[in-house]
Design a protein around this nucleic acid. Structure first.
Lengths: 72, 72
DNA sequence: GGGTGATGTCAAATATTTTGGACATTATCC
DNA sequence: GGATAATGTCCAAAATATTTGACATCACCC
């Protein structure tokens, strides 16, 4: 559960669609660091459900609009 | 991000609705231990997104059909 | 050319999740 | 009464996520 999880994400696209919000700015908003956002965008590990919810809700969308399960 | 997260879950109900699947059995199926299932059902911490996806998909439902965000 | 913002990488430290094992309780079944 | 399955608790440890700080690159602007 740590080596490139089978999860896709659209964080980067959502940032761009929302006025080019920077990784650092998004991190501040959802309460994590810039590095965490980078790691999530690069699918280096799977974030906590709480962090995932915060990101989705900030963009005003559902969890599965941000994160996808490979194998669906 | 560790003291009783603002996340609700219906794991227990889903287990019961699926033939009274035990915590241990569910754990085996999704690849975590019995203790992890207990902790999740009791909202002791927020699981990884990967574990969350595995649970939801085993029951054939979406992430937000299992986990909810308090504040929605 | 010198600033600034955004992204990325690396490594080490800290925090959180997950595990493994031992033990208690309750209910059921024989 | 003894056996077994299911849930729960506690604790220590291993594994993974997250933080912090330092540094590199690229693009843009002045």
């Amino acid at each position: 559960m740590s080596k490139r999880p089978p999860i896709t994400n659209r964080v980067r696209q959502l940032r761009e669609e929302h006025g080019g919000l920077s990784q650092a700015a998004l991190g501040d908003i959802v309460g994590v660091t810039r590095q965490t956002i980078i790691a999530i965008e690069q699918s280096r590990y799977s974030p906590s459900l709480e962090t995932s919810f915060r990101i989705a809700r900030h963009f005003g969308v559902g969890l599965e609009d941000v994160f996808g399960w490979e194998g669906d």
